[in-house]
Amino acid sequence: MSRLLTVSPSPHIASDQSVEKLMQGVVISLIPAFLVTLYVFGLGALIITTISVITCVLAELTIQKYMMKTEVRIHDGSAIVTGLLLAFNLPSNLPWWMVVLGAVFAIGIGKMTYGGLGNNPFNPALVGRVFLLISFPVQMTSWPLPVESRMQYLDAATGATPLGILKEAVRNGESLPDVMNQIPDHMQLFLGQMGGSLGEISALALVLGFFWLLYKRILTWHIPVFTVATVFVFTGILWLANPDKNATPLFHILTGGLMLGAIYMATDLVTSPMTKTGMIIYAAGIGIITVVIRVFGAYPEGVSFAILIMNAFVPLINKYIKPKRFGEEVKHG
């Protein structure tokens, strides 16, 4: 035989899944949310997303090529996803240099210091976001008004988010039903007619993306469903206990970054647990911490912190929560 045969250990076939395809799938699933944000925040959303994605990719390229001197693997698309998700967690009137700073921090500190994709314990996009939130609290919490100021970027008129209004009201001792009149109704919240970060506004678009991810088998349903369910149950108990002080569970689910966090940030493959039981514990943790921060904490919103805190617990969860082995329950004598 002229040509040499190839020999390798079994299996000899592989599924058509690849890291690139996973990342592509995530990017595709973000399209509905991106369209909504373009409609609601317009110019600012476009600028921020573009800057964030480009900076993330360039940062990864530079670090891999010149600092780590390893193979450049920006083609796997993970930097694009990080860039998109970071942008989706920022207000649309953030100065461009802050976006750059956040993106460099997300990739540089959040991801590459640990050795790159697969080794980072914390979700890089959230690391970038929280870094910006702590460094520039004012800019990070001034939210452009939805739809009205969509042709402006830095000079957009700003207002508070529904959660911000709620927090303010509770602090001032106002009665909740009065406050609720200032807030768009649930249907508008569901569609995305509210102030907030780029990607978090429309629950509808995010849920559409979630179905796509499920269909493509990129995610399992456990983390998003259990995160949202925990928030629902926890806020539900609080609401039943004192409807004057606490908002409805539906309000909590539809506002803030909960949907975005539950579907895209908490489910980051690298930083979430490996087993189904582990995922449920992790998701419940995120839900509880989120509600605790929202209701009892100083910040109006706490999804980012909740996810980062639970990220830190993931190695521990992986260590102690093992999948149920085949033939385990039968005692072997």
Binding site: L4, L5, T6, V7, S8, P9
Partner: peptide
């Protein structure tokens, strides 16, 4: 050479195979 190995680059793995 009589064939081409295409597995994990480890003598021990190749040798067991």
């Amino acid at each position: 050479r009589t064939n081409r190995y295409d597995g994990a680059q480890s003598c021990t793995i190749a040798s067991a195979l």
